[in-house]
Design a binder for these strands. Sequence first.
DNA 1: GCCAACGTTGGC
DNA 2: GCCAACGTTGGC
Length: 163
Amino acid sequence: MAKATTKPQYWLFKSEPSAFSIDHLAASKDQTAPWDGVRNYQARNYLRDSVKVGDLVFFYHSREEPLGIFGTMRVVKAGYPDSTAFDPASKYFDPKSKPESPTWVMVDCQLVTKFAAPITRAALAEDETTADMLVLKRGIRLSIQPVTESQWKAAHRLAGVKS
DNA sequence: GCCAACGTTGGC
DNA sequence: GCCAACGTTGGC
């Protein structure tokens, strides 16, 4: 395994908390879990090509109030085949994806911090820097999004947490 | 729960 | 290769 030599990149991963929340991650063994079920090609390409071990990730809850960033994770395993695509019992089953030529990719993430209070969508929208985040843009459904360093730091200021 | 916006599928 | 129809996402 190559050691990460470049500085970490920043990301935001979206999840519906009823499916997988930050508390699910916190309750996982070693507070680590695969980020599976991504079924969008652009998001898949990020997971496959760009998300590296050591990268830092905001955990965003979508669909259910309160909407916002609930904490941070670190990538501990880079892209590898998403096994849920091979499992007919999984809701993420995709018969087009074969083990010998996987279509879908997942990474493993470990919880770093669960914020005392989430950084709400409303708070992100009010800050000059975080207002530009992709997650706030109308119609952007991408579940794996790049975040800039300045957005990462500004969001932490909103959370009252050191980045 | 609604529905606009989006991504994918499939007929042609 | 176009594009209408469809299913899904996700804020509201």
